[in-house]
Design a protein around this nucleic acid. Sequence first.
DNA 1: CGTGGGTTTGACCACCATCAATGCACGTGG
DNA 2: CCACGTGCATTGATGGTGGTCAAACCCACG
Lengths: 225, 225
Amino acid sequence: MYVTASPSINDDFIVVRTPQPSIAKQTTITIKPGKHLFLEDDPADLIYEVASGVLRLTRIMEDGRRQVIAFGYPGDTVGFPSNGHYHTDCDALVPTTLIVHRRSDLESAKGDPDLHLRLLRAALREISGMQDHFMMLGRKSSIEKLASFLTVLSTRVGEPLGELTQIALPMTRADIADFLGLTTETISRTFTQLRKSQIIAIDHVNTVIILKPVALRAIAQGDND
Amino acid sequence: MYVTASPSINDDFIVVRTPQPSIAKQTTITIKPGKHLFLEDDPADLIYEVASGVLRLTRIMEDGRRQVIAFGYPGDTVGFPSNGHYHTDCDALVPTTLIVHRRSDLESAKGDPDLHLRLLRAALREISGMQDHFMMLGRKSSIEKLASFLTVLSTRVGEPLGELTQIALPMTRADIADFLGLTTETISRTFTQLRKSQIIAIDHVNTVIILKPVALRAIAQGDND
DNA sequence: CGTGGGTTTGACCACCATCAATGCACGTGG
DNA sequence: CCACGTGCATTGATGGTGGTCAAACCCACG
């Protein structure tokens, strides 16, 4: 069953029109885990800003090989159109709340100029962020990839835990593997390796504590031994 | 020696102000092979549209590992800023002519709205194009990568040669390797493999003729044997 | 308890990297 | 015009990293 991306009332979306005191009213939707926000080649009329939760942007080849393009965390904007269409699938990993913008808010300067600029900046940030990802996919070893991944997550969404930093991982090992261009087995082995060398601790499967952030960062950049 | 990216008269750039009949005047520069247009972390005040020639966008790690982010062909736009800075190096592979735009042409809607929209669309196309590259880097075998690369080049810049299509490769094997996340040796071997299976012919080292476009496309998508 | 999805671990192997030698084209100077 | 040097490409031999296949494990569910 395909899910429409329109912010209409159905099983998958909860639509809320939040009246803003001064400015225009803002539309937000909430999407459940596993539900799709949009699919590749869907006509792209809406752009979404993550308010809370985590999204997963993916592309799939005919034979099933999958690449996770990005994880959408609060503050990220997803759904930038090209030729009027989305070019990835997008679904939620956890209950996720999104601020809905119209494509015209980005493409036309007629409306709210502040919003227009904000969306444009988000697009440019997107381009910039993808470049790091390129380096990771193309030129880093498995341990460098995972260390990079954890380092980025740590600064973006790490929660302080005493002196240390804790990271929640709402995605599966397979998701991380498809993000880094590896397999779940390699991800698992590499986690074990980092754990055994006391650089991280794995509390629950989905909760990592960074014990040696400096060492992790060093590995991420290739300062190996 | 670092090269300024400002369109001023020096050894590296030839500045031409082309008076446009009806609209505003357009500034173009010409840059020689090997010369840098900008470097990573340079303040980004200008955005460039390739009119002719080929650019190379790269990122380099401290230890020298390199990732070619993109090749800039005519019609491509390069130099999208993030936080006011470039985030790749950029140099020319062949003599290249560029149309110069100001960053404000993209970021502000005050000026020429057509130009503004055109640059915005270019940025969105950029995001879209990078997604294919992700799939290539993360999830494809060496032969699939090279076949994908040649297929894209074929449709973008292939020149008809009788019934067939010919592709000029202004970049070295090392450039292709760093674009695809492989080594020069693997690129060379894979070229040989494609040549021996009669899918391509290599006229000069830098000139490839596509003999079986369908087969090449099939390999690119993983329809192997 | 029992089932099942995700994770971990192990054994083995393939693909691609690495190291090294050779080939080839081109430019320069004798 | 040839000898040489240089940079890039090709080819070969070998090894390591990460993939594949398979089994065990661990919880969170019912």
